[in-house]
Amino acid sequence: MVTLYWAEDGAFPPGDRGLAYGDGLFETLRVDDRGAYLQAFHLDRITRDAERLRIPVNRAELERALQQALERYADLYRGKNWVLKLTLTRGSGGRGYRPTPELQPNLLISHAAMPPLAPVTGVVADFSRVPLTVNPLFSGIKSLNRIEQVMAASELQDGVFEVLMANAAGHIVEGTRTNLFIETDDGWRTPPPDSLAVMGVMRRFALERLRASGEVVHEAPIMLEDLLASSCRGVYLTNSVLGVVSVRTLAEQDLPVTGRLATICGSTPTTD
């Protein structure tokens, strides 16, 4: 059984393994008066990834905690969008890195105001100097181990929305907080799942919408030249809080902006 903590109470145990070792997961959900956007997708991911990390947690209890949070904070944000964060850790205890079998998971819940949305005219992006390393055993997991993204995000300058990170093979994989899609003359392309540090829920939603619309989609490596080629019809970043974001300038090169992926995705569902 998971132990629930509310961030505003300030009672989270200092010996928690998430604080000590990044031994845990997190989900960040956009919320409005109707509920949490892509709630089922978020619950799918955190439950699946907890199983991959052998953190014993039940989807039903996570869903109950999420519903408690929606009810607890509803009056604070009536009529507004806001952000709910779930941080799940293995718990407190164990000697050094080695966890003990009897650990009980901890769930820390916090909330924040909605950040500004990106303009529909597109954003400015650049490339990061920080390489992205993905252990194949943990690819796609939204774990608390995000130091590469932290260091890459420190490169952000005023006016730059995101920096894109490349792996050792030179493939452009994702942003510090976003997944990547490009539209080309041959259809859509997004990096393959095993290359991803984080397999975003908005990425999953966009893939489902593209395929349901009959679009050709390739999950394949993306090189720098693919992004800047004349055959590129658009570069998009996806994020579960911010939705679909068009890139209008990448590394000081102007890109076409049609907003087509946002149009295909349409409105993002809440509790379905």
Rank of each mutant, 00 (worst) to 15 (best):
M1C: 10
A7I: 00
E8H: 13
P13F: 05
P13S: 11
P14M: 07
G24N: 11
L25S: 02
F26E: 10
E27I: 12
T28A: 10
V31A: 07
D32H: 03
R34S: 15
A36H: 03
F41M: 13
L43N: 01
L43S: 01
D44L: 00
T47K: 05
R52T: 11
P56V: 08
V57D: 04
R59V: 03
R59W: 03
R59Q: 14
E63F: 04
R64C: 04
A65P: 03
L70Q: 06
R72S: 08
Y73M: 09
A74I: 04
N81C: 10
V83N: 14
V83K: 15
L86P: 00
L88W: 04
R90S: 02
R90M: 05
G91Y: 06
G91W: 06
S92H: 01
R95T: 12
R98S: 06
P101R: 05
N106D: 02
L107Q: 02
L107A: 05
I109G: 06
A112P: 03
M114D: 11
P115M: 13
P116A: 14
L117D: 05
P119C: 00
V120T: 13
T121M: 00
V123A: 02
V124N: 09
A125Q: 13
R129D: 11
V130I: 15
T133L: 10
V134W: 08
N135L: 12
S139C: 14
K142V: 02
N145K: 07
N145T: 12
E148A: 15
Q149Y: 14
M151Y: 07
E155T: 09
D158M: 06
D158C: 06
D158L: 10
V163I: 01
A166V: 01
I172N: 07
G175L: 06
T176H: 01
R177F: 09
T178M: 09
N179D: 09
L180N: 01
W188E: 04
P191E: 04
P192H: 08
S195E: 11
L196H: 08
A197E: 01
G200M: 14
M202T: 15
L207I: 08
L207A: 07
L210Q: 10
R211E: 15
E219G: 10
M223G: 14
L228S: 13
V235T: 13
T238S: 06
R248V: 00
E252M: 14
P256A: 06
R260E: 02
L261D: 02
T263N: 05
T263S: 12
I264A: 02
C265D: 01
S267T: 11
T268H: 05
T271Y: 04
D272L: 13
